[in-house]
Design a protein around this nucleic acid. Structure first.
Lengths: 356, 356
DNA sequence: TAAGATAAAGAGACCGGTCTCATAACATAT
DNA sequence: ATATGTTATGAGACCGGTCTCTTTATCTTA
């Protein structure tokens, strides 16, 4: 009984060596799978290791080799379907190459992101995939580079940082979705994002610190402008951070004199909140308001009507990021680039055609 | 340029010590935050460390202290909302206590689970939370205990293994849901699970290797038996592993002569698949068929009708598991126990009252 | 002012692997 | 028989921290 009371020093190569009556170096060669050892001795060592239930101490191994076979991932919020799908893609790529994954959550907060990065560097991960919360604070990321740890940005690019990035083709996605809505006869469209509304209104798109958000808004605004629609910036609304705030944003938006007839949701969480807001306002989709959401989330296909979405192929994005990072870790010579994963519009039933 | 070309040996305490003109031991005391050092020397060392951008090597630290401040988590499938919520609960508990989390996926397969456990033990995690894929193969888990690593089981208990477990109150949940359906006048109910149907039919409940699944089925069958309803085992259907298989299971089930009027889905993924199956069969919920799903997933509240669910409070389960493990790691004296997190039935609109 | 107590800094072993280099044993060539 | 090469094993340094033990400097107190 009380197994755990005796912390029972773990079995080491030295123990195995002694049991097999060989030197530590020889036992290590067998157990570590390197160097040359005769068949007879190999068997002895393996038998001894099995008898003692030897398990290598990966920590010690990492210390001397300098490689941990771990890749670190810093995401905004694991609970978000976007990230959990991405993580699966990354994990799959990692496993295929013999790497493991440590996940850390930033909660989209810069400080948490910094300490997560520090911690993972401290654990001597072989490489890092980061979803930067902001693209204007890059000291900690530059330090990663200076430390010689390969880095791949995910979902958001930072041009000033000379490093690989895997993102969706956000501008294009927004353009396609917006054009589609205009094609269906909509003339007043709004883009709703969960980004924190610092100060409230949006004045300068260029200042948006998150490239994915910025590019989508640029695409959206660009199409509106190109179509000669008035006051596009007015139709970009931020701050849909939770159900309560979303309700407020949507309510205000729809009670304005030139209320939009179609809404574009920046991600599936915002989309779900908007859907619920509309539901609670007693509005029917798409009769009263049309909507399009980003990300092919579970819920979008079972609502009435099912939601037209921009499919981001997040799993592929994650896999690509993982593969890219591993290529860097293995020093494959590659130019630094931004990999864009194309998106596609999946038409379902949440967009009405407006008569002309 | 080419920062990463020079792998640039990381800065160590020795480097900092040299720069601060003190001994390695003294620098280590300052940097490691232990022992006693004068204010003046402390400042010198801190300044040197900052100038050199020293980052402690946690690997080395773990080697000498024997503690890694990491807890390992082996889950069935991160992509499943159940697990990603649980992981958030675990992570939150961990962060509060200064621990980090490594997540490994088993894909609900025993071999993958074994190697994940081995790997995490190899990384010298301070403790382990495992969702055992099967409750009848416990060698690898027993080895964890023998290695002196604290272990907490999650979602599924294994009585033969004298170790803490955090689960939902699965039997009770199934009983409450089943009784509710019967109370609404249903007389033919089916329980549909994603568990692999080895050989097809279910013959012996006691043999089900997953305690959560078994207890729910026991609860379900128990209530049916108690209500005098015929042939309860016949109404337990396994193998709803993907949309295709679920379609087949549901189609067959509903085309039988004594087809059920209500379905109980074992988790939210199965629930979603059932919902889609019913939709594609042109059946209306709850007019044609009633259903209840486990887990308060996103999609369940936005369907028409919204789905009545058994709320499992997964976040709390995860948090509890994390806290329990940390208590074990810190050698808090506690009796080994099974912690059951109670569930509650959330009535929405997917269950019809059948006239009598 | 010398003896003892106390505080601060240094020296070096240790954790458990990897890996270089030295050595021993044996085979082949001259 | 001696020189040379090849191969298997052993000895021990090293990775970057922690931590014990020793030494040195400072402070009391008689």
């Amino acid at each position: 009984m009380e197994d755990s009371a005796h912390p029972k020093r773990a079995v080491t190569v030295a123990d195995v060596a002694k049991a097999a009556k060989v030197s530590k170096a020889t036992a290590a060669r067998v157990l570590g799978g390197y160097g040359v050892v005769s068949a007879k001795i190999t068997d002895q060592v393996i038998a001894a290791a099995a008898a003692l239930e030897y398990r290598p101490n990966e920590l010690a191994r990492s210390m001397s080799t300098g490689r941990s076979a771990i890749i670190g991932v810093v995401v905004g919020d694991i609970e978000n379907a976007f990230f959990s799908l991405a993580v699966r893609g990354i994990s799959d790529a990692a496993r295929l190459a013999g790497f493991n994954v440590i996940i850390a959550n930033s909660g989209e907060e810069l400080d948490a992101e910094k300490s997560a990065v520090d911690l993972l560097i401290g654990k001597r991960v072989d490489g890092l995939i980061v979803t930067p919360a902001r693209c204007d604070s890059i000291d900690h990321l530059q330090h990663v580079r200076r430390a010689g740890v390969p880095l791949v940005l995910f979902d958001r690019a930072i041009p000033e940082l000379d490093v690989d990035a895997v993102t969706g083709d956000d501008r294009d996605a927004a353009i396609v979705a917006t054009r589609y809505l205009i094609g269906q006869g909509h003339r007043r469209l709004a883009y709703v994002s969960a980004m924190d509304a610092e100060g409230g209104g949006l004045t300068n798109i260029g200042r948006i610190s998150n490239s994915a958000v910025r590019e989508r808004i640029e695409g959206f605004v660009g199409v509106l402008t190109e179509a000669g629609l008035p006051n596009p910036l007015h139709y970009v609304r931020l701050g849909a951070t939770d159900q309560h705030h979303t309700d407020r944003v949507i309510k205000r938006l729809l009670s304005e004199s030139a209320a939009p007839t179609a809404l574009l949701a920046s991600d599936s969480l915002v989309g779900l909140r908007i859907f619920k807001s509309l539901q609670s306002l007693g509005l029917s989709i798409p009769k009263d308001v049309s909507m399009i959401s980003f990300l092919d989330a579970d819920w979008t296909s079972v609502t009435v009507p099912p939601i037209t979405i921009v499919d981001q192929r997040v799993y592929e994005m994650g896999k690509l990021a993982g593969e890219r990072l591993i290529a860097r870790i293995e020093r494959t010579p590659l130019a630094v680039e931004r990999l864009r994963v194309s998106t596609s519009l999946v038409l379902r039933g949440s967009v009405a055609t407006i008569g002309r």
